[in-house]
Amino acid sequence: MADSNETLTVRLWRGDATEGDYHTFTVPRRENQTVLDVVTEIQRRHAPDLAYRFACRVGVCGSCAMMVNDTPRWTCRTHVSKVAGDGTLTVGPLRNMPVIRDLVADMTEFFDKWQKAGGRFQGSRTRAEPMAEVDTTSKARRHADASIECINCGVCYAACDVVGWDKDYLGPAALTRAWTLLNDTRHADQRGTLDRAMDQGGCGSCHTQGNCMRACPVGISPTGAIAGIKRMSLLDFLGMRGR
């Protein structure tokens, strides 16, 4: 249990798209304190103009992701005691995205790449037709299940080194989305999604480093999804892609 006299030294990124640096704040340590609590405390007591994002505070919405000690994390689900063993904490905006201000990153490109990777669902039935039946025990459905919990928090995108050096790379989240659609029997544009996911900047650019898989707060393996799309593409070429 943290002593009420104990303090925490927090280096927090302040700045905008053009310049900025880390400012140091001192806040009291509290029991069961999360990194989001610390950021909120700094905003309430020290820097009222601090910009940061959060909504649900319980790991559902995925909007509070930031770099915590150089690792992308959901700040609401990160206990200070787990990451600030030496009493210091460094918090910054998500990596690989332009900064809007302070801890707020511009996620426009991240979401645009979803579309580029063929992540838009396209149905084939009208509402007059009966609902599509999905076999919940099928292999495709199990693959989709493994990736479908993604809430677009951007943690994997910030964790990925390839995103950092290859501006064309669509990133782990967008390709994971494509993988769920490729395993969704209701999705009509299978061809379009597979082609886009394998196009320049798609699965071929992944280096299989696995940072996305390690960082994902919900335990999804984008690395596995990308490998799955590659495998599907190969089988598709050989005319052996099963549905």
Binding site: L194, D195, M198, D199, G204, S233, L234, F237
Partner: peptide, 8 residues
């Protein structure tokens, strides 16, 4: 040639 073909 498409990226997918090159990959294959």
């Amino acid at each position: 040639m498409s990226e997918a073909r090159l990959f294959v």
